[in-house]
């Protein structure tokens, strides 16, 4: 527990020193959302913005986690950490919690902008939107931790973004409604976790109270996080060639 707290604090401190990254984390999603606001009429924008609130944290946290973890590997800090009493799960959960906190702040700011200034509206509570966005961020972190194990350089790490993240965005129901997809595409969509978080957000949009579908979807996202973290833990070897 102590090492988990220390690790979470260390990762947040690293982030705090990086003012530019903080700026990008907060400003960029708002700018993109504003862009969408001017591109689409308000009815389409509403659904789109809600979906984007789930996609931003997933995409951004995947990227920064895979690079951060790769840096731990290439600078030797990972090897050194593994000679200390730190448990592997402390490191992985440390990233999950630290970046989850950062993403929650990001989602809160973006939600305020979307609800107050861009006229986004949901029947359900904004609190659930932020909750689902945070869950998505943690999903991005977990997949990023896993992906970093398969990259040797930053060049390779960023290329996992189109491989792992883009198909989930394409098939989550943002571009084509899932019901209109060919059967096999729908089957792929069914096994991609982002599909469920987008569905959960749409449930918040359509219903005043949290639905059982929303809770089920959140549970599926949570399950995917655990699977990815366990797989990532398996890639962290104390002994390496």
């Amino acid at each position: 527990m102590r090492t988990l707290v220390a690790t979470t604090g260390r990762i947040l401190r690293q982030l705090r020193h990086d003012k530019r990254t903080i700026g990008l984390l907060i400003v960029v999603p708002n700018l993109l959302l504003t862009l969408l606001y001017f591109m689409f009429d308000s009815r389409i924008f509403n659904g789109l913005a809600l979906t984007m609130l789930g996609i931003f944290p997933f995409l951004i946290m995947f990227l920064i986690t895979s690079i951060a973890m790769l840096r731990e590997r290439t600078t030797g800090t990972l090897e050194r950490l593994l000679t200390t009493p730190l448990r592997k799960t402390d490191l992985l959960f440390g990233y999950g919690i630290a970046f989850g906190i950062a993403a929650t702040i990001q989602a809160a700011v973006v939600s305020v902008v979307a609800y107050l200034f861009l006229g986004m509206d949901t029947l359900g509570s904004p609190g659930y939107v932020i909750l689902i966005a945070a869950a998505n961020a943690v999903l991005g972190v977990a997949l990023g931790l896993l992906a970093s194990a398969f990259a040797k350089t930053e060049f390779q790490a960023v290329q996992f973004m189109p491989v792992i993240v883009l198909p989930q965005i394409l098939l989550c129901g943002l571009f084509v409604a899932r019901e209109q997809m060919a059967g096999w595409l729908q089957a792929i969509s069914d096994v991609l976790p982002l599909t469920y978080s987008v569905e959960a957000l749409q449930e918040v949009g359509r219903f005043a109270n949290p639905t059982s579908t929303m809770w089920r979807d959140l549970a599926i996202v949570g399950g995917a996080v655990i699977v990815a973290l366990v797989a990532a833990a398996a890639t962290l070897r104390r002994r390496t060639p």
Partner: peptide
């Protein structure tokens, strides 16, 4: 353990 290349966090 001190690794040959300094392994500390440059952004701390």
């Amino acid at each position: 353990y001190l690794t040959q290349a300094p392994s500390v966090y440059g952004d701390l």
